[in-house]
Design a protein around this nucleic acid. Structure first.
Lengths: 150, 150
DNA sequence: CTCGCTGCAAATACTTTGCAAAGGA
DNA sequence: TCCTTTGCAAAGTATTTGCAGCGAG
């Protein structure tokens, strides 16, 4: 945890940004909720618990900054809200998501499933892939078994 | 073209919706701009050229309706705007996109590249896949050659 | 002192909703 | 007549921006 904060701090410094208390508080919230997919508002409310003086605009600005630095990925699951997802340590690509259309749960997949597909895209369409977004919509394990009850 | 309008009309009727003039005008715009990725506002302005009396809310409502019927797919490339993309005839899944981070161009890929990946997801995570969203971010052919100039 | 960073409030952008009127079955 | 659909305006969200003040170097 402290270790990752330290790394992010260095990353900010390398671009002459500072890890201010507000920014640190925001990063901590993200670290504590790695599994979740928080909206800016969510992050704001959580940060506010520890640092009540923070403003919503600051949270937006921080998330935007972290997004530029590739510390977080901004993602949108189709509701009108942007969500922010911490990149895993050393991850080159954004991880994938399984969104359950019944219960709304979101599961993350770390494995890179797209290696072959990217090769095809690069050769067949001559498109230099830098990153990707892959989300599956479907029914999660839990909802499948619930459906059996019906 | 007329053929596809006819099909959509039947699809609406089967759910007891009507293909009103406004809805038809909206569908025609989508058909005429299949390659583009129009926002609601874009569609509105284009429909307005032919049917100036239409209201923006109607366009939103129509797009929402078409989205439910899976005639169009709603997609979001990360700017704050929802875009609407007509499904290809008979397509089971949403097609993929290549978004160029330099020039912003968006290319569509019809081929289903995810067959194997979906099988893995279904068996390994016991997740019943219904649909997907796959977008690659990278550099398109054109921008790659421009970069050579530098 | 300088300059980046912050909080607040206001502005903006996008989308949805309420409602009375219109129109087809 | 009944019920869906529409246009307009208003309301709602989500996000961004302007700006004065603060604070580390």
């Amino acid at each position: 945890m402290e270790n990752r904060i330290e790394k992010i701090k260095k990353q900010l410094h390398s671009q002459s940004y500072k890890l201010t208390p507000q920014r640190e508080a925001t990063v901590r919230v993200l670290l504590e909720h790695e599994e979740d997919h928080l909206s800016a508002e969510d992050v704001y409310l959580l940060v506010k618990e520890k640092s009540p003086e923070i403003g919503l605009a600051t949270v937006y600005r921080t998330l935007e900054l972290l997004s530029e630095l590739k510390v977080v990925d901004k993602i949108n699951f189709g509701d009108g809200v942007s969500r922010y997802d911490l990149r895993k340590e050393g991850a080159e690509h954004f991880h994938h998501h399984l969104v359950c259309v019944e219960c709304g749960s979101v599961k993350e997949i770390e494995e890179d499933l797209l290696g072959d597909v990217e090769k095809i895209v690069e050769s067949q369409w001559e498109f230099k892939v830098k990153d990707h977004r892959l989300t599956f919509h479907g029914i999660c394990k839990k909802c499948q078994s619930h459906d059996d009850d019906k």
